[in-house]
Design a protein around this nucleic acid. Sequence first.
DNA 1: ACTCGTGTTAGCTG
DNA 2: TCAGCTAACACGAG
Length: 283
Amino acid sequence: MPELPEVESARAAIERAGLGRKIADVDDSDTYECRPHSPGEIREALVGRRLVSAHRQGKFLWCETSGIGRSRTAGPELAIHLGMSGRLVITGPDGPGGRPGTPTQGGDYLGTADPEGVLDPRNPAWNRFTLTFADGGELRLFDKRRLGRVRLDPDRSALGPDAQAITLEQFRHRLGRGSSPVKARLLDQSVVAGVGNLLADETLWQAGIAPQRPADELDDDELAALRRALRKATRAAIAHGGVHTGTFIPHRTRAGHCPRCGAEVQRATVGSRTTYWCPKEQH
DNA sequence: ACTCGTGTTAGCTG
DNA sequence: TCAGCTAACACGAG
């Protein structure tokens, strides 16, 4: 279930296994995830091109594409947002014939085990978008809940600096403004890109700051501590393969206890999202 | 059986 | 302009 770390691993997988392969066909018939493009529009734009680079800003992922044939004119950017339930599946040149869950030559199935075989490309149920490469392999967006998005030439102008790359000065100016709860600021992708609900709770817990504090009441030291905690939590989550590996996240349950002081964690809605925090350590 | 939710966005209201 | 809420998406978990 994607937060920033899963998006980064998807980006790295495209870089490792998806670049340079010629696009022979595109299934963009899901009018919801490919909206506002009409069916066939993305296929028309991409057939004959290759993905040449993969980028990420927060939870937003996009690829640059090549010209067609010897043309040096670059193609459109292809953006893929995983939403809340999307996963990328990249298969190797031996394509759909590979056994489900088994890495195929030259590519791999992303994510972990697939005992039910739902990632098998022959199971069409939740495949929302597919690039078929000339070598027979595929890059697919697999998304049960249909919250993902695919689009050409995305507008990134409203996206804030990436959570890992944001400078202290940027962070102070963007985050420490407004009367909203500081957690709402953290979750606002136009303020800082990449923080989801779980990562926000982990970060606030690490920094010892209560989620409902008005953002403009935080002093410089608290904002610095918050940024430090954000970068640390993000880095750790990427290194360990997901935000679930955080210290506080496993204790985000009813009757959960703070892993440091043992106090019972509080639960409330902050910034329209379910929020857990330690009332003893977060102020 | 029923409620809730790791994300985003459009649209509305104050 | 800012801030906050709701619906939509569609399924799994508890």
